[in-house]
Simulated assay, not measured.
Amino acid sequence: MTVDPCLLTAWQVQSVLMCYPDESLVERIPLLRAATATLPSSVGGPLAAFLDHASAVPLLALAEEYVATFDHRRKFSPYLTYFAYGDTRKRGMALLRFKHAYRAAGLELDDSELPDHLAVVLEFAACGDPRTGVRLMVEHRAGLELMRIALTDSASPWRHVLESVSATLPPLGGHDREKLARLVAEGPPEEEVGLAPFAPPEYMPTGGTR
């Protein structure tokens, strides 16, 4: 599969910006700005807007905003399978599919990371197997769109990153629109059980924040 190098650049920048912000982000901002400037406006413009925000606020404030956004609100979850399955048996199996996809491409995740974190999937698409990375995102397109809408409604700076991600993917199809409508009305499935009993420990790493 031949992939436009601009897409690989976009996914790499998006991956960095979806991670917990730390000193390495501050150090990378000039490089990220340079990479963003090479992208089409629909993809690079939103990323530039996020970088403007990240440059204008103290790092501690940005980190606190990240935690308040992604660790405590269900519609903002950065874990793609959560939107489809909640914390149910089916989600455990979906996480295994992500792990197997990475392994088939010769990649192994650190056990501190869940494989469906959007930052992980974007990095995989950029540096691993673009075709499989896109497929994983498209399979969870409705959840990504719900996240984008929720972040936009709350005026979160991360709405810009999700807008950029969406611009690299196919438009929502009819089936995805139906799933999105259900998610908007009902939210992700209610938690039924913990994940640990339904998959081997090596596939259920602790941590949860990339």
Results as ranks from 00 to 15, higher is better:
Met1Phe: 09
Met1Leu: 10
Thr2Ser: 12
Asp4Ala: 11
Pro5Gln: 08
Cys6Leu: 11
Cys6Lys: 13
Leu7His: 12
Gln12Ala: 15
Val13Arg: 00
Ser15Ile: 06
Val16Ile: 14
Val16Asp: 00
Met18Pro: 01
Cys19Asn: 13
Pro21Gly: 08
Leu25Asn: 01
Arg28Leu: 14
Pro30Trp: 09
Pro30Ala: 07
Leu31Val: 11
Leu32Arg: 01
Thr38Glu: 14
Pro40Ser: 09
Ala49Gln: 14
Phe50Asp: 03
Leu51Phe: 04
Leu51Val: 03
Ala56Pro: 00
Leu59Asp: 03
Ala61Asp: 15
Val67Glu: 08
Asp71Trp: 07
His72Arg: 13
Arg73Cys: 07
Arg73Trp: 11
Pro78Gln: 04
Thr81Cys: 07
Tyr82Leu: 10
Phe83His: 15
Ala84Cys: 07
Ala84Pro: 06
Met93Ser: 12
Met93Ile: 11
Leu95Thr: 01
Leu95Arg: 02
Arg97Ser: 10
Lys99His: 15
Ala101Gly: 06
Ala104Pro: 02
Ala105Lys: 01
Leu107Tyr: 13
Leu107Gly: 06
Asp110Asn: 15
Asp110Cys: 07
Ser112Met: 06
Ser112Thr: 13
Leu114Phe: 12
Pro115Gln: 03
Asp116Arg: 05
Leu122His: 00
Ala125Arg: 03
Gly128Tyr: 02
Pro130Lys: 00
Pro130Tyr: 04
Arg131Glu: 14
Thr132Lys: 11
Arg135Phe: 07
Arg135Ser: 12
Leu136Ala: 01
His140Met: 08
His140Asn: 15
Ala142Glu: 05
Glu145Asn: 07
Glu145Gln: 13
Ile149Arg: 15
Leu151Glu: 02
Leu151Val: 02
Arg159Gly: 01
His160Thr: 04
Val161Asp: 01
Leu162Lys: 00
Leu162Thr: 15
Glu163Pro: 07
Ser164Asn: 05
Val165Lys: 01
Val165Ile: 15
Ser166Glu: 11
Ser166Gly: 10
Ala167Ile: 05
Ala167Trp: 08
Leu172Phe: 04
Leu172Trp: 03
Arg177Pro: 04
Glu186Tyr: 08
Pro188Arg: 06
Glu190Leu: 12
Glu192Gln: 13
Gly194Ala: 12
Ala196Ile: 08
Pro197Gly: 06
Phe198Lys: 05
Ala199Val: 13
Pro200Thr: 09
Pro201Asp: 12
Tyr203Gln: 09
